[in-house]
Design a protein around this nucleic acid. Sequence first.
DNA 1: ACACTCTGCATACACTGTTCACTCATGTCA
DNA 2: TGACATGAGTGAACAGTGTATGCAGAGTGT
Lengths: 255, 255
Amino acid sequence: MSRGIVVVASSRAGKPSRRAAQRESTLLEIRREGRRRLVSEGEAGVTLRPIARALGLTAPALYRYYASRDDLLLDLIADLYAELTEGMERASAGPLPQDLAARTVAVTWEFRRWARANPREFQLVFATPVGTGEDSRTERLDACGQRFGRVYQTLFAEIWQRAPFPIPADDDLDPRLRAQLATWAADNDIPLPLGALAMFLGCWVRIYGLISLEVFGHLGFALEDVTPMYDAMMAELGARLGLPWRAEFGCPEPG
Amino acid sequence: MSRGIVVVASSRAGKPSRRAAQRESTLLEIRREGRRRLVSEGEAGVTLRPIARALGLTAPALYRYYASRDDLLLDLIADLYAELTEGMERASAGPLPQDLAARTVAVTWEFRRWARANPREFQLVFATPVGTGEDSRTERLDACGQRFGRVYQTLFAEIWQRAPFPIPADDDLDPRLRAQLATWAADNDIPLPLGALAMFLGCWVRIYGLISLEVFGHLGFALEDVTPMYDAMMAELGARLGLPWRAEFGCPEPG
DNA sequence: ACACTCTGCATACACTGTTCACTCATGTCA
DNA sequence: TGACATGAGTGAACAGTGTATGCAGAGTGT
């Protein structure tokens, strides 16, 4: 289902017809309003009638723009997801290109910042079981996920290529794990040794694990403020990756 | 609100009156039916009318047992959570008490088993932002969380006390982190050095991170079957904790 | 000016959680 | 045993929800 909405054709020339412009505008308004509700009240707060009312419409009118509520929601989530990725890409491009340590810090900090600023969206994107919802959902978010993953993957590859760091030898890897890593590397043309890939996954597990635990409040039993532990983890990861760490990488701001 | 239901008084003597027994029975049926729907269709699938219909009642009747749908849901989630903890406690008690490596493996394996068998409940319990829902929710689940945490905490303390393993010195810890760990240890009478506590949190981050990523399908981009990586991680954690690892700890079964 | 498409609306349907007034069986007490 | 209170369950109703249908009117291309 879910693909019942056809993009309106613009008038033959390049300039969009008045109607197409109007459509684009209300489409934007719908997303803006929906997003506000998603962020402030969570997934359940995205309901059609209030959204429609906010722009002077009625609920069925929204079906001219989205085939279903789920479609709208998916669009909103994908938007947030894309924004996260763009933020991380910007963060990665912020420091000098050759300052890989600073770029790693900036990217991960942006990830954490976004997660803490948008806990509900973080849950929707990063902590929702697969197979929940329709396939279109999984499909679309997978596309976003690939772009997200590329940020870390390219950064990691750069780090390795600039200055290889100690990794486990292929023979030290579980044969089953080794086979999977080999498949992954081959399918995606990743020019890294298998041990480095294992290391990459290990780093991702720790970054994701710590930030998730923080966002979901599952470190409160021990830590009131996760930032010091986050800093310590990043420093350790930096050390393992052979990144020259600097004092300024620690985050001064509390909470 | 949410506490509008008073337990019916049993007749003066110990034996429950016929009515109290009946009540207990239908209460159980409600939970059983609700649980089935929660597991099979997720949080949104727990709706009053179908549950009531399943036991030959109407929806308002359920309000004699639960003050609201949220209350019922909370009960169901807490039940699942408690079952997880009990499963892990059983797993910890399975091997010989002095075989700490086997107990660690068994406990964590049970955690992973439960998470994969109940992804939706795993999300509800371990991956839902704090502050979502009412305070009673947070409160109740926190109580369950404490019991859950105790399984790992006691096991970890036993490991350390039996045979201390290398830990960072206090001076090597970030002062802010050190202070938080000290507070935590003091408030809960944990007889472990601060470095060991940092290590505990680090282990928890990795276990939680890997299992979450698996359950939420965020390792599929690289690994088809997470078990080998899980085994590798457990072996590494075991090595760090000085646990004598044995080949049989690896899980033979795929997927 | 025509025909056509697209937008939006009113209505309706089947749901949802929840409240209210009411009935009727059960339990308690004089 | 009779009187009374309690507690379980009901049907009706309310305010919501997503969604389907049919119809009006505006925008657009010929």
